[in-house]
């Protein structure tokens, strides 16, 4: 027994050694599987579905046809829907950026407990669901609500703030702000207070320092935040549905209507693929922005 132990030094068992690539593959395997089953296969299914023929009453005939796709671009309603979706989502993204940027910049410059407190404050809306927050906005923006009431009390003709695009933009802007602020903060790494001071000593007024130094250095954060918020705005469904009151037609709400109400699944699939194409385009723009600033 003892001689055997001496003949075989410890740890002499044959070991399976994985190279770096092998280890990486092994670690990526679970997520690759989940993604394949939960994302890629369904997307391919959707793609196939968009080329099937829709029958009246919700039936689907599994024969290849371009009817859904060609109908999309021939029907003025759908062209308007696509353009409107993109315009509204861009407006929401821009409004979110505008109101989030000062907050993110202030947060970036604060420190210690105050910063922790403010960060928690920024993230805390995410603890409530978008549905609840949307109903909150309905209460605020309603015709008998406090905002309309105050404007009327001042003697102005109150604008309609709900069941139109304005309401959707207001609601989604607030709902998307935490994502925008966090993205901006993540991209503010290159902002160095010394560099701002250098600009000032070289004669730049605060506004010039902002436009020439601070803003260019925060472009990575702006690009990231805008990409994220645009994608979330295009795909958001509950808020436009409730605050739009059925009068604001956007891609996400139309997909819901086609899939659940009209039961035209091939058209819903086609619209879904279109949303994916828009996301692809947004990603391409994002990548281009990052390349240009590098």
């Amino acid at each position: 027994m003892s001689t055997a132990a001496a003949a075989h030094p410890p740890y002499s068992m044959p070991r399976v050694t994985l190279g770096r690539a092998g280890t990486a593959t092994l670690l990526l395997l679970p997520i690759a599987l989940v993604n394949a089953m939960g994302f890629i296969v369904p997307v391919l299914n959707l793609l196939r579905m968009s080329f099937y023929e829709a029958l009246a009453g919700g039936g689907i005939r599994e024969t290849f046809t371009l009817a859904s796709w060609s109908g999309l671009f021939r029907d003025a309603f759908y062209v308007d829907l696509i353009v409107n979706s993109i315009v509204v989502s861009l407006s929401i993204t821009f409004a979110t950026l505008l109101v989030s940027y000062p907050i993110a910049l202030y947060l970036h410059r604060s420190s210690g407990r105050w910063r922790t407190f403010l960060t928690v404050l920024v993230i805390s809306p995410l603890l409530t669901s978008a549905v609840v927050r949307t109903y909150g906005w309905i209460a605020l923006l309603a015709d008998q609500g406090p905002i309309v009431g105050s404007i009327a009390a001042l003697g102005f003709t109150p604008p309609r703030l709900m069941f139109n695009t304005t309401g959707v933009v207001i609601g989604l802007t607030e709902i998307l702000m935490p994502y925008m602020i966090l993205s901006l903060l993540a991209g503010f790494g290159r902002l160095d207070p010394r560099v701002e001071e250098a600009a000032m000593t070289l004669g730049a007024r605060p506004s010039q320092t902002f436009w020439r130094v601070i803003l260019p250095l925060t472009v990575p954060g702006i690009a990231l935040g805008c990409l994220l918020c645009f994608v979330l705005a295009v795909s958001s469904f509950i808020t436009p549905k409730l605050l739009g009151g059925g009068r604001v037609f956007l891609l996400a709400t139309e997909i819901y209507d086609q899939a659940i109400v009209t039961l035209n699944w091939p058209l819903a699939a086609t619209l879904s693929m279109l949303v994916l194409i828009i996301f692809g385009a947004a990603l391409a723009v994002y990548a281009r922005v990052l390349r240009v600033i590098e």
Partner: peptide
Amino acid sequence: DMGLVFQSYALFPH
């Protein structure tokens, strides 16, 4: 109207 050279140089990276 002062020229300041910083310890970290503080050049504009962009």
